[in-house]
Amino acid sequence: MAEVLVYVDHVDGAVRKPTLELLTLARRVGEPVAVHLGAGADTAAPVLAEHGAVKVLAADAPEFADYLVVPKVDALQAAYDAVSPAAVLVPSSAEGKEIAARLAVRIGSGIITDAVDLEAGDEGPVATQSVFAAAFTTKSRVSKGTPVITVKPNSAAPEAAPAAGTVEQLAVSFGEKATGTKVVSRTPRESTGRPELTEAAIVVSGGRGVNGAENFPLIEGLADSLGAAVGASRAAVDAGWYPHTNQVGQTGKSVSPQLYIAAGISGAIQHRAGMQTSKTIVAVNKDAEAPIFDLVDYGVVGDLFEVVPQLTEEVKARKG
């Protein structure tokens, strides 16, 4: 069977969940070969093997951390040259998309970004995308070169499928452009202890209706009672009530959890773009006319300062 390259998104060898989803999708079109760049390949390899990687191509060099994007493109291209894969799959993070895009032009291939599903087709992998703020679903394929496809988080449930996962060193020589953009400093984001927004099964988001940073603990309290991630609308982020990393929507994160709870959010098109594919949607809003109610499975017209605390208490009580 043809091999499929899967780019590994990890933090020092801790593999992030979207990569496991990618391995699962990759098995539909070929044999997954993982590409691990940076430290921690030995930590990552057993996890990648468990999820179907027949091989792990590993490379580590200071360039990956010291310069932006291009060294990783050079390395992925080296893997591409070594394997001649049937497709290249990359997680749809901001960086993942940039790496994939540059690789695509280099190898003369078309690129599809933000796929939400992938299946084998007669003329190569068929990618499902959700477009125009999720108002349409499209099926597309790459018609020239080796398909390069980036896939959004939560597009598949990771399945175990043990394979060899043998680690092989990948030889990479960096081009002269690799050191063009220097990363002068890097401040890792502090963990909140809550699930990662894009990976969470449940997301609780607050909007302008939360009316102040001092009230966001109300949203956090509900999130914690459900083991959920916390999101925010752009209005709440722009007001400085919650960090931009938690913004849900077109210019924030796009989420697709099992359950999305919107509190004090009107449901503007740009917000919907980032959450409309959630499986179950629930809203609390005091305006019965708010567009968010067009999307909901269950909506409460009411004051979030009454409804949310009561909900949190009731969830806690039910969980015992």
Partner: peptide, 16 residues
């Protein structure tokens, strides 16, 4: 179309 209820004091409980 989902279920939409008006909070009459029990909205949080109904949602739960």
């Amino acid at each position: 179309a989902g279920t939409i209820v008006k909070d009459e004091g029990e909205g949080g409980k109904q949602l739960a």
